[in-house]
Amino acid sequence: MLTLAPVCGPQAPIARVNPVAKLFAVAAISATALIAADWLTPLLLLAAIFAVVPFSGIRFGPLVKRLKWLWLAAATVVVVNTVFAAEQTGAILFSLGPLEISAGALTAGAALGLRVCVAATAGVLGFATTDPTDLADALTQQLRTSPRFTIGSLAALRMLPLLAAEWRQITTARRARGLEGGRNPVRRAKLFASTMFALLVGAMRRAGRLAAAMDARGFDSGIPRTRAREQRMSPPDWIIMVAAVAVCAIAVGLSAAYGVFRFLS
């Protein structure tokens, strides 16, 4: 089901880190993974990420549940990039009819899969431990994003469970009036389209009402808003940002020292 349930309690150490600091760390690590095309750099980054988990207060069960799909995606990347690689280099490890897999292609595929894995895992660690309200506060206060856009988006995010429930309600209402897809794929696709349209219209209607409700409470009055919730950068937040950069530098440095580092693909 669709939820925004975080993978840790609100008091967990990682939940209390300033969201902007987390965002920075996630961006630094995934950017490093993106520019490195070898297998060692992402592996080192992944090791660093998992070294942090025990101290973060993240509950293991929910984390694995979220990561399951990501790793599946990473595994697919390894497979397709190995099998469909344009050129197979090095020793042939496996061959079946027209299908050939070489050591070179496999290493390259594995490197790509690891890269996906790093970006995905870092993303979950950063975002699934962040309360959207805190993120919005930090964005407006530390990054000085426009409060109107940020708070407007935050208010829309509250609609997510409502719209998800609405999807179900629309389906139910159609059933009550005798409309249902059944097993026929064409009818199903048609009903999907009409349900999607009903959802969009409902969403637009809610957006109009929400905007009216926000304006009625002075949202667009032109007065600079004050802030009820303060987000600030504390020394641990700075440490986390510096540590993220350091980890990236070390990972790149080590793999360069071993002579495997490759820039881009």
Partner: peptide, 10 residues
């Protein structure tokens, strides 16, 4: 703003 944001959610 809200319409764009709600469209994104939808």
């Amino acid at each position: 703003i809200v319409t764009c944001a709600v469209l994104a959610v939808a």
